[in-house]
């Protein structure tokens, strides 16, 4: 690699520090043996013990995982189908329709889903409404990733399968699906992290009964940023990091924009 000038290295270092130091501070304080996020006293796992004995927190975590699993599974199926359709039929409006929720301000999406669920569907807010909301904003991500993968493929492999006597279903099962599988899994993981982390849309669509991890953290910091919040944030961060790394490993186009 070319040697970088000093000022560029400093600028890069400052940028990364700005991005990651706050996260590292949270991680550090989650192991701090003090009620206050003020000074370093000593190392402890106490806050993690508190965390794993906090029934409300555990319920919120269970809700989050359940929502993320169901929502990202549905979003992956629908998003993959959308990606395939966009690639195959090149419809004029479908890409826009699928991708708009991705670009839409979350607050707007949250408010409109709330209104839609209550006034149009007469739905009681709860797990179902949160799942539906999360599917809504995840489909677009999956569709984009799957379509990017398809766009990089030589169209003639599908013709070859057809010419060799494969039915459309056989072509999908034996050729198309195995080739887009990394993108599908990457899309799933992406939806999963989006769902686990989502606050704004969840806040509007969860109603009073249901709490998720981000909602629970928010309600706790209204009082004070306790080390327990640091601990749960650290775990959430770790999960997200693992999922993003796995997703990017699976689908190179996901990070680098095509192979």
């Amino acid at each position: 690699m070319r040697k970088l000038p000093l000022w560029l290295k400093l600028a890069a270092g400052a940028t990364f520090a700005f991005l990651y130091v706050p996260l590292l501070v949270v991680v550090a304080y989650s192991f701090n043996d003090s009620r206050l996020n003020a000074e370093w006293v000593g190392f402890t796992f106490a806050w993690y013990r508190v965390l794993f004995n906090d029934a409300e927190m555990l319920l919120a975590a269970r809700n989050s995982l359940f929502i993320a699993l169901v929502a990202s599974t549905c979003a992956t199926i629908l998003g993959t189908l959308a990606g395939l359709a966009i690639h195959r039929y090149r419809p004029r409006w479908l890409p826009l329709l699928v991708i708009t929720p991705v670009a839409m301000p979350e607050i707007l999406l949250g408010v409109s889903l709330l209104v839609f669920f209550i006034q149009v569907l007469h739905l009681t807010l709860g797990l179902l409404s949160v799942v539906l909301a999360h599917i809504t904003f995840s489909i677009g991500f999956v569709a984009i990733i799957v379509r990017a993968r398809l766009a990089g493929m030589d169209e003639s492999i599908f013709e070859a399968a057809r010419d060799l006597g494969a039915s459309p279903w056989q072509t999908f099962r034996l050729v198309t699906f195995p080739l887009i599988l990394p993108a599908v899994v990457a899309g799933f993981l992406m939806s999963f992290t989006l769902s686990i982390d989502d606050f704004v849309i969840t806040f509007f669509t969860a109603g009073v009964g249901v709490s998720t991890l981000p909602l629970q953290i928010y309600s706790m910091i209204k009082i004070a940023v306790t080390p327990e919040v640091n601990a749960v944030s650290t775990l959430l961060m770790l999960l997200t990091l693992v999922l993003v790394v796995v997703a990017s490993r699976l689908d190179k186009g996901f990070m680098k924009g095509g192979e």
Binding site: I157, E159, A160, A161, D163, L164, S167, Q170, L174
Partner: peptide, 25 residues
């Protein structure tokens, strides 16, 4: 039987699986 300019091989299958594809389906 059609042979494509850029081979159009199934890159997720071995050579043997590629050749067997037509018989398999």
């Amino acid at each position: 039987g059609f042979v494509f300019q850029h081979y159009a091989l199934f890159r997720h299958m071995t050579v043997a699986q590629n050749i067997a594809f037509g018989l398999r389906v």
